[in-house]
Write a protein that binds this DNA or RNA. Structure first.
Lengths: 194, 194
DNA sequence: AAAAAACTGTACCTTTGGTGCAGTTCTAGA
DNA sequence: TCTAGAACTGCACCAAAGGTACAGTTTTTT
Protein backbone atom coordinates (compact mmCIF):
# COMPACT_ATOMS: atom_id res chain seq x y z
CA UNK A 1 0.00 0.00 0.00
CA UNK A 2 2.81 2.41 0.85
CA UNK A 3 4.53 1.66 -2.42
CA UNK A 4 1.30 2.08 -4.36
CA UNK A 5 0.43 5.35 -2.65
CA UNK A 6 3.81 6.88 -3.38
CA UNK A 7 3.61 5.86 -7.02
CA UNK A 8 0.05 7.10 -7.44
CA UNK A 9 0.84 10.44 -5.84
CA UNK A 10 3.88 10.82 -8.03
CA UNK A 11 2.40 9.80 -11.34
CA UNK A 12 -1.31 9.56 -11.08
CA UNK A 13 -3.35 6.42 -11.10
CA UNK A 14 -3.39 5.50 -14.70
CA UNK A 15 0.33 5.91 -15.07
CA UNK A 16 1.03 3.54 -12.22
CA UNK A 17 1.18 -0.01 -13.46
CA UNK A 18 0.37 -3.00 -11.35
CA UNK A 19 3.57 -4.65 -12.52
CA UNK A 20 5.55 -1.82 -11.08
CA UNK A 21 3.71 -1.93 -7.76
CA UNK A 22 4.15 -5.66 -7.30
CA UNK A 23 7.82 -5.47 -8.28
CA UNK A 24 8.49 -2.74 -5.71
CA UNK A 25 6.47 -4.51 -3.05
CA UNK A 26 8.18 -7.82 -3.86
CA UNK A 27 5.03 -9.78 -4.40
CA UNK A 28 3.60 -11.33 -7.50
CA UNK A 29 0.85 -10.20 -9.80
CA UNK A 30 -1.21 -13.15 -8.65
CA UNK A 31 -0.72 -12.07 -5.08
CA UNK A 32 -1.93 -8.62 -5.98
CA UNK A 33 -5.10 -9.86 -7.62
CA UNK A 34 -5.72 -12.14 -4.69
CA UNK A 35 -6.09 -9.09 -2.46
CA UNK A 36 -7.61 -6.63 -4.91
CA UNK A 37 -10.26 -7.56 -7.41
CA UNK A 38 -8.98 -4.91 -9.79
CA UNK A 39 -7.35 -1.48 -9.87
CA UNK A 40 -10.61 0.05 -8.70
CA UNK A 41 -10.41 -1.96 -5.50
CA UNK A 42 -6.87 -0.74 -4.97
CA UNK A 43 -8.02 2.84 -5.47
CA UNK A 44 -10.74 2.43 -2.90
CA UNK A 45 -8.41 0.81 -0.40
CA UNK A 46 -5.78 3.51 -0.88
CA UNK A 47 -8.34 6.28 -0.57
CA UNK A 48 -9.88 4.80 2.57
CA UNK A 49 -6.50 4.48 4.19
CA UNK A 50 -5.50 7.97 3.13
CA UNK A 51 -8.66 9.63 4.39
CA UNK A 52 -8.32 7.84 7.69
CA UNK A 53 -4.74 9.00 8.13
CA UNK A 54 -5.60 12.59 7.21
CA UNK A 55 -8.45 12.54 9.68
CA UNK A 56 -6.10 11.30 12.36
CA UNK A 57 -3.66 14.06 11.47
CA UNK A 58 -6.32 16.76 11.71
CA UNK A 59 -7.57 15.29 14.97
CA UNK A 60 -4.14 15.36 16.48
CA UNK A 61 -3.31 18.82 15.21
CA UNK A 62 -6.50 20.56 16.24
CA UNK A 63 -6.82 18.65 19.50
CA UNK A 64 -3.34 19.83 20.32
CA UNK A 65 -4.18 23.41 19.40
CA UNK A 66 -7.22 23.31 21.66
CA UNK A 67 -5.00 22.12 24.45
CA UNK A 68 -2.74 25.09 23.89
CA UNK A 69 -5.56 27.60 24.02
CA UNK A 70 -9.11 27.11 25.25
CA UNK A 71 -10.53 29.97 23.17
CA UNK A 72 -11.87 28.54 19.90
CA UNK A 73 -10.62 31.42 17.74
CA UNK A 74 -7.11 31.27 19.10
CA UNK A 75 -7.12 27.50 19.00
CA UNK A 76 -8.04 27.73 15.31
CA UNK A 77 -5.30 30.23 14.62
CA UNK A 78 -2.79 28.01 16.37
CA UNK A 79 -4.09 24.99 14.45
CA UNK A 80 -3.70 26.76 11.12
CA UNK A 81 -0.21 27.87 12.08
CA UNK A 82 0.74 24.31 12.98
CA UNK A 83 -0.79 23.06 9.74
CA UNK A 84 1.13 25.63 7.75
CA UNK A 85 4.39 24.71 9.44
CA UNK A 86 3.83 21.02 8.93
CA UNK A 87 3.08 21.49 5.24
CA UNK A 88 6.03 23.81 4.68
CA UNK A 89 8.47 21.61 6.54
CA UNK A 90 8.12 18.57 4.39
CA UNK A 91 11.51 17.69 2.88
CA UNK A 92 10.59 18.28 -0.74
CA UNK A 93 7.29 19.43 -2.20
CA UNK A 94 4.35 17.80 -0.52
CA UNK A 95 3.48 14.81 -2.65
CA UNK A 96 -0.07 16.01 -3.08
CA UNK A 97 -3.48 14.93 -1.98
CA UNK A 98 -4.60 11.49 -2.97
CA UNK A 99 -8.21 12.61 -2.91
CA UNK A 100 -7.52 15.45 -5.34
CA UNK A 101 -5.45 13.37 -7.69
CA UNK A 102 -8.18 10.76 -7.75
CA UNK A 103 -10.77 13.48 -8.22
CA UNK A 104 -9.16 14.58 -11.46
CA UNK A 105 -9.20 11.03 -12.76
CA UNK A 106 -12.48 9.98 -11.30
CA UNK A 107 -13.99 8.74 -14.53
CA UNK A 108 -11.48 5.93 -14.36
CA UNK A 109 -13.27 4.66 -11.31
CA UNK A 110 -16.70 3.54 -10.27
CA UNK A 111 -19.35 5.51 -8.43
CA UNK A 112 -18.21 4.08 -5.12
CA UNK A 113 -14.81 5.74 -5.44
CA UNK A 114 -16.40 9.05 -6.37
CA UNK A 115 -18.52 8.68 -3.27
CA UNK A 116 -15.49 8.27 -1.05
CA UNK A 117 -14.11 11.49 -2.51
CA UNK A 118 -17.30 13.43 -1.94
CA UNK A 119 -17.82 12.15 1.56
CA UNK A 120 -14.28 12.84 2.66
CA UNK A 121 -14.49 16.44 1.49
CA UNK A 122 -17.83 16.59 3.22
CA UNK A 123 -16.48 15.32 6.53
CA UNK A 124 -13.64 17.83 6.44
CA UNK A 125 -16.11 20.59 5.65
CA UNK A 126 -18.20 19.56 8.66
CA UNK A 127 -15.17 19.43 10.91
CA UNK A 128 -14.01 22.92 10.10
CA UNK A 129 -17.50 24.37 9.84
CA UNK A 130 -18.00 23.16 13.41
CA UNK A 131 -14.86 24.89 14.61
CA UNK A 132 -15.88 28.10 12.85
CA UNK A 133 -19.38 27.97 14.27
CA UNK A 134 -17.95 27.78 17.79
CA UNK A 135 -15.79 30.76 16.99
CA UNK A 136 -18.69 32.72 15.54
CA UNK A 137 -20.72 32.22 18.69
CA UNK A 138 -18.09 34.02 20.72
CA UNK A 139 -16.81 36.45 18.12
CA UNK A 140 -19.67 37.54 15.86
CA UNK A 141 -18.23 37.82 12.36
CA UNK A 142 -18.02 41.26 10.78
CA UNK A 143 -20.23 40.18 7.89
CA UNK A 144 -22.74 37.33 8.00
CA UNK A 145 -20.92 34.19 7.01
CA UNK A 146 -21.84 30.68 5.92
CA UNK A 147 -19.94 28.24 8.08
CA UNK A 148 -20.06 25.45 5.54
CA UNK A 149 -18.40 27.74 3.03
CA UNK A 150 -15.70 28.54 5.55
CA UNK A 151 -15.23 24.84 6.16
CA UNK A 152 -14.87 24.28 2.43
CA UNK A 153 -12.37 27.10 2.33
CA UNK A 154 -9.88 25.10 4.34
CA UNK A 155 -10.17 22.27 1.83
CA UNK A 156 -10.00 24.74 -1.01
CA UNK A 157 -6.81 26.45 0.12
CA UNK A 158 -5.10 23.19 0.96
CA UNK A 159 -6.00 21.57 -2.35
CA UNK A 160 -5.14 24.64 -4.39
CA UNK A 161 -1.95 25.15 -2.43
CA UNK A 162 -0.93 21.55 -3.01
CA UNK A 163 -1.32 22.00 -6.75
CA UNK A 164 0.77 25.17 -6.74
CA UNK A 165 3.40 23.65 -4.47
CA UNK A 166 3.62 20.73 -6.77
CA UNK A 167 3.84 22.83 -9.90
CA UNK A 168 6.54 25.06 -8.42
CA UNK A 169 8.14 22.14 -6.56
CA UNK A 170 8.15 24.31 -3.47
CA UNK A 171 6.26 23.35 -0.31
CA UNK A 172 6.45 26.90 1.00
CA UNK A 173 3.67 28.00 -1.35
CA UNK A 174 1.16 25.81 0.45
CA UNK A 175 2.40 27.06 3.81
CA UNK A 176 2.00 30.68 2.69
CA UNK A 177 -1.49 30.13 1.40
CA UNK A 178 -2.58 28.52 4.65
CA UNK A 179 -1.24 31.59 6.45
CA UNK A 180 -3.37 33.80 4.19
CA UNK A 181 -6.39 31.74 5.12
CA UNK A 182 -5.38 32.23 8.74
CA UNK A 183 -5.14 35.93 8.21
CA UNK A 184 -8.61 35.95 6.65
CA UNK A 185 -9.98 34.12 9.67
CA UNK A 186 -8.28 36.62 11.96
CA UNK A 187 -9.78 39.60 10.17
CA UNK A 188 -13.18 37.98 9.90
CA UNK A 189 -13.60 37.21 13.57
CA UNK A 190 -11.30 39.53 15.49
CA UNK A 191 -13.23 42.20 17.29
CA UNK A 192 -12.39 45.72 16.07
CA UNK A 193 -12.91 48.99 17.84
CA UNK A 194 -16.00 50.54 16.31
CA UNK B 1 -8.50 19.46 -30.14
CA UNK B 2 -11.93 20.31 -28.71
CA UNK B 3 -12.83 16.67 -28.53
CA UNK B 4 -9.52 15.81 -26.89
CA UNK B 5 -9.79 18.61 -24.35
CA UNK B 6 -13.27 17.59 -23.26
CA UNK B 7 -12.22 14.00 -22.87
CA UNK B 8 -9.06 14.85 -20.95
CA UNK B 9 -10.90 17.19 -18.59
CA UNK B 10 -13.52 14.56 -18.00
CA UNK B 11 -11.30 11.56 -17.50
CA UNK B 12 -7.72 12.63 -17.18
CA UNK B 13 -5.01 12.09 -19.68
CA UNK B 14 -4.16 8.50 -19.21
CA UNK B 15 -7.77 7.41 -19.37
CA UNK B 16 -8.33 9.11 -22.69
CA UNK B 17 -7.41 6.80 -25.52
CA UNK B 18 -6.20 7.98 -28.86
CA UNK B 19 -8.68 5.63 -30.52
CA UNK B 20 -11.51 7.37 -28.78
CA UNK B 21 -10.28 10.82 -29.76
CA UNK B 22 -9.87 9.96 -33.41
CA UNK B 23 -13.23 8.25 -33.52
CA UNK B 24 -14.98 11.31 -32.07
CA UNK B 25 -13.05 13.67 -34.32
CA UNK B 26 -13.73 11.49 -37.36
CA UNK B 27 -10.14 11.09 -38.41
CA UNK B 28 -7.89 8.08 -38.46
CA UNK B 29 -5.16 6.99 -36.10
CA UNK B 30 -2.65 7.61 -38.86
CA UNK B 31 -3.98 11.11 -39.25
CA UNK B 32 -3.52 11.67 -35.55
CA UNK B 33 0.08 10.52 -35.55
CA UNK B 34 0.76 12.66 -38.60
CA UNK B 35 -0.02 15.76 -36.53
CA UNK B 36 1.22 14.65 -33.12
CA UNK B 37 4.39 12.70 -32.62
CA UNK B 38 2.88 11.05 -29.57
CA UNK B 39 0.54 11.68 -26.66
CA UNK B 40 3.08 14.02 -25.13
CA UNK B 41 2.83 16.28 -28.13
CA UNK B 42 -0.93 16.30 -27.83
CA UNK B 43 -0.62 17.25 -24.17
CA UNK B 44 1.66 20.14 -25.00
CA UNK B 45 -0.61 21.38 -27.79
CA UNK B 46 -3.69 21.15 -25.59
CA UNK B 47 -1.99 22.93 -22.72
CA UNK B 48 -0.67 25.72 -24.92
CA UNK B 49 -4.11 26.30 -26.38
CA UNK B 50 -5.75 26.17 -22.98
CA UNK B 51 -3.35 28.62 -21.35
CA UNK B 52 -3.79 31.01 -24.25
CA UNK B 53 -7.57 30.91 -23.96
CA UNK B 54 -7.50 31.37 -20.18
CA UNK B 55 -5.18 34.34 -20.61
CA UNK B 56 -7.58 35.85 -23.10
CA UNK B 57 -10.44 35.29 -20.69
CA UNK B 58 -8.60 36.99 -17.81
CA UNK B 59 -7.61 39.85 -20.12
CA UNK B 60 -11.17 40.41 -21.17
CA UNK B 61 -12.60 40.10 -17.70
CA UNK B 62 -10.16 42.37 -15.91
CA UNK B 63 -9.94 44.87 -18.76
CA UNK B 64 -13.70 45.13 -18.57
CA UNK B 65 -13.64 45.57 -14.81
CA UNK B 66 -11.09 48.39 -15.19
CA UNK B 67 -13.39 50.03 -17.65
CA UNK B 68 -16.20 49.86 -15.12
CA UNK B 69 -14.14 51.46 -12.35
CA UNK B 70 -10.86 53.33 -12.64
CA UNK B 71 -9.85 52.66 -9.03
CA UNK B 72 -7.68 49.53 -8.94
CA UNK B 73 -9.18 48.13 -5.74
CA UNK B 74 -12.73 48.47 -6.96
CA UNK B 75 -11.77 47.20 -10.40
CA UNK B 76 -10.30 44.13 -8.71
CA UNK B 77 -13.42 43.59 -6.62
CA UNK B 78 -15.56 43.89 -9.75
CA UNK B 79 -13.25 41.52 -11.60
CA UNK B 80 -13.48 38.92 -8.85
CA UNK B 81 -17.26 39.28 -8.78
CA UNK B 82 -17.43 38.76 -12.54
CA UNK B 83 -15.11 35.79 -12.27
CA UNK B 84 -17.23 34.29 -9.53
CA UNK B 85 -20.40 34.77 -11.56
CA UNK B 86 -18.88 33.28 -14.66
CA UNK B 87 -17.64 30.21 -12.78
CA UNK B 88 -20.93 29.71 -10.98
CA UNK B 89 -23.02 30.13 -14.09
CA UNK B 90 -21.57 27.29 -16.05
CA UNK B 91 -24.30 24.82 -16.94
CA UNK B 92 -22.97 21.91 -14.90
CA UNK B 93 -19.86 21.75 -12.78
CA UNK B 94 -16.93 23.49 -14.37
CA UNK B 95 -15.01 20.80 -16.19
CA UNK B 96 -11.83 21.66 -14.31
CA UNK B 97 -8.52 23.18 -15.11
CA UNK B 98 -6.43 21.44 -17.72
CA UNK B 99 -3.28 22.75 -16.08
CA UNK B 100 -4.22 21.25 -12.73
CA UNK B 101 -5.28 17.93 -14.15
CA UNK B 102 -2.02 17.72 -16.06
CA UNK B 103 -0.14 18.78 -12.95
CA UNK B 104 -1.39 15.75 -11.06
CA UNK B 105 -0.27 13.44 -13.84
CA UNK B 106 2.88 15.25 -14.77
CA UNK B 107 5.18 12.28 -14.50
CA UNK B 108 3.44 10.93 -17.54
CA UNK B 109 4.94 13.76 -19.53
CA UNK B 110 8.32 15.21 -20.33
CA UNK B 111 10.02 18.17 -18.71
CA UNK B 112 8.73 20.48 -21.41
CA UNK B 113 5.13 19.89 -20.35
CA UNK B 114 6.01 20.45 -16.71
CA UNK B 115 7.60 23.71 -17.79
CA UNK B 116 4.42 24.88 -19.48
CA UNK B 117 2.56 24.21 -16.23
CA UNK B 118 5.04 26.12 -14.11
CA UNK B 119 5.24 29.08 -16.46
CA UNK B 120 1.50 29.44 -16.81
CA UNK B 121 1.01 29.53 -13.06
CA UNK B 122 3.87 31.98 -12.95
CA UNK B 123 2.32 34.28 -15.53
CA UNK B 124 -1.00 34.28 -13.68
CA UNK B 125 0.82 35.01 -10.44
CA UNK B 126 2.53 37.97 -12.09
CA UNK B 127 -0.70 39.25 -13.54
CA UNK B 128 -2.55 39.32 -10.24
CA UNK B 129 0.48 40.39 -8.23
CA UNK B 130 0.64 43.42 -10.52
CA UNK B 131 -2.99 44.27 -9.90
CA UNK B 132 -2.52 43.90 -6.14
CA UNK B 133 0.63 46.04 -6.16
CA UNK B 134 -1.30 48.85 -7.83
CA UNK B 135 -3.97 48.51 -5.17
CA UNK B 136 -1.43 48.50 -2.36
CA UNK B 137 0.08 51.74 -3.58
CA UNK B 138 -3.22 53.50 -3.11
CA UNK B 139 -4.59 51.55 -0.17
CA UNK B 140 -1.75 50.53 2.12
CA UNK B 141 -2.61 47.04 3.37
CA UNK B 142 -3.37 46.62 7.07
CA UNK B 143 -0.51 44.17 7.50
CA UNK B 144 2.57 44.00 5.28
CA UNK B 145 1.80 41.67 2.42
CA UNK B 146 3.74 39.82 -0.26
CA UNK B 147 2.16 40.58 -3.61
CA UNK B 148 3.41 37.41 -5.26
CA UNK B 149 1.68 35.41 -2.54
CA UNK B 150 -1.52 37.30 -3.17
CA UNK B 151 -1.16 36.61 -6.87
CA UNK B 152 -0.72 32.91 -6.11
CA UNK B 153 -3.77 33.10 -3.91
CA UNK B 154 -6.02 33.70 -6.89
CA UNK B 155 -4.60 30.59 -8.55
CA UNK B 156 -4.89 28.71 -5.29
CA UNK B 157 -8.52 29.50 -4.68
CA UNK B 158 -9.51 28.83 -8.28
CA UNK B 159 -7.68 25.50 -8.44
CA UNK B 160 -8.91 24.39 -5.05
CA UNK B 161 -12.42 25.55 -5.83
CA UNK B 162 -12.39 23.64 -9.09
CA UNK B 163 -11.50 20.45 -7.28
CA UNK B 164 -14.27 20.93 -4.73
CA UNK B 165 -16.81 21.90 -7.39
CA UNK B 166 -15.90 18.82 -9.29
CA UNK B 167 -16.08 16.56 -6.27
CA UNK B 168 -19.47 17.94 -5.22
CA UNK B 169 -20.59 18.35 -8.83
CA UNK B 170 -21.68 21.87 -7.94
CA UNK B 171 -20.17 24.92 -9.64
CA UNK B 172 -21.45 27.19 -6.88
CA UNK B 173 -18.67 26.04 -4.55
CA UNK B 174 -16.05 27.62 -6.77
CA UNK B 175 -18.12 30.79 -7.04
CA UNK B 176 -18.44 31.00 -3.24
CA UNK B 177 -14.75 30.49 -2.68
CA UNK B 178 -13.88 33.25 -5.13
CA UNK B 179 -16.22 35.52 -3.18
CA UNK B 180 -14.36 34.67 0.02
CA UNK B 181 -11.13 35.62 -1.67
CA UNK B 182 -12.83 38.84 -2.71
CA UNK B 183 -13.89 39.44 0.85
CA UNK B 184 -10.31 38.87 2.04
CA UNK B 185 -9.07 41.41 -0.49
CA UNK B 186 -11.70 43.86 0.70
CA UNK B 187 -10.70 43.53 4.33
CA UNK B 188 -7.01 43.61 3.55
CA UNK B 189 -7.07 46.84 1.59
CA UNK B 190 -10.17 48.74 2.64
CA UNK B 191 -9.33 51.70 4.85
CA UNK B 192 -10.88 51.44 8.32
CA UNK B 193 -11.59 54.14 10.79
CA UNK B 194 -8.84 53.98 13.36
C1' DA C 1 0.35 20.38 -63.97
C1' DA C 2 3.59 19.67 -60.20
C1' DA C 3 4.84 19.66 -55.59
C1' DA C 4 3.92 19.53 -51.04
C1' DA C 5 0.87 18.80 -47.23
C1' DA C 6 -2.73 16.23 -45.27
C1' DC C 7 -4.38 12.29 -44.67
C1' DT C 8 -5.75 6.68 -45.00
C1' DG C 9 -5.06 1.55 -44.44
C1' DT C 10 -2.67 -2.20 -42.96
C1' DA C 11 0.40 -4.86 -40.58
C1' DC C 12 2.95 -5.34 -36.58
C1' DC C 13 5.16 -4.80 -31.83
C1' DT C 14 5.01 -3.90 -26.72
C1' DT C 15 2.97 -2.85 -22.38
C1' DT C 16 -0.72 -3.21 -19.35
C1' DG C 17 -5.03 -4.62 -17.10
C1' DG C 18 -7.33 -8.59 -16.28
C1' DT C 19 -8.97 -13.85 -16.05
C1' DG C 20 -8.48 -18.62 -14.74
C1' DC C 21 -6.68 -22.05 -12.33
C1' DA C 22 -3.65 -25.63 -10.45
C1' DG C 23 -0.32 -25.93 -7.13
C1' DT C 24 2.40 -24.37 -2.94
C1' DT C 25 3.47 -22.24 1.55
C1' DC C 26 2.19 -20.27 5.71
C1' DT C 27 -0.52 -19.98 9.93
C1' DA C 28 -3.94 -20.41 13.52
C1' DG C 29 -6.73 -23.46 16.07
C1' DA C 30 -8.51 -28.36 17.63
C1' DT D 1 0.91 -32.47 15.65
C1' DC D 2 -2.45 -32.57 12.24
C1' DT D 3 -5.37 -29.96 9.25
C1' DA D 4 -8.31 -26.46 7.19
C1' DG D 5 -8.18 -22.34 5.25
C1' DA D 6 -5.92 -18.14 4.03
C1' DA D 7 -2.15 -16.27 1.60
C1' DC D 8 0.32 -16.59 -1.98
C1' DT D 9 3.04 -18.29 -6.74
C1' DG D 10 3.52 -19.60 -11.71
C1' DC D 11 1.88 -19.95 -15.99
C1' DA D 12 -0.93 -19.51 -19.92
C1' DC D 13 -3.83 -16.55 -22.12
C1' DC D 14 -6.78 -12.44 -23.80
C1' DA D 15 -8.04 -7.62 -25.22
C1' DA D 16 -7.08 -2.81 -25.29
C1' DA D 17 -3.89 0.80 -25.82
C1' DG D 18 0.33 3.36 -27.33
C1' DG D 19 3.36 3.46 -30.90
C1' DT D 20 6.14 2.37 -35.47
C1' DA D 21 6.66 1.85 -40.36
C1' DC D 22 5.42 2.72 -44.66
C1' DA D 23 3.15 2.58 -49.12
C1' DG D 24 -0.61 4.73 -51.18
C1' DT D 25 -4.35 8.39 -51.81
C1' DT D 26 -6.56 12.79 -51.56
C1' DT D 27 -6.45 17.77 -50.98
C1' DT D 28 -4.35 22.16 -51.15
C1' DT D 29 -1.01 25.40 -52.70
C1' DT D 30 1.83 27.40 -56.07
Amino acid sequence: MDVAQDAVLAKGFAATSIDEIVAAAEVTRSGFFYHFKDKNALARALLDRYVESEDALFDELFDRSRELHEDPLHAMLIGLKLLSEMMGDLPSAHPGCLVATTCYQDQLFDAQVRDVIRSSFHSWRQRFAGYFREIGEIYPPKTPVDYDELGDMVNCVVEGGLILSRAYDDPRILAQQILHLRSYVTMLFSPTRQ
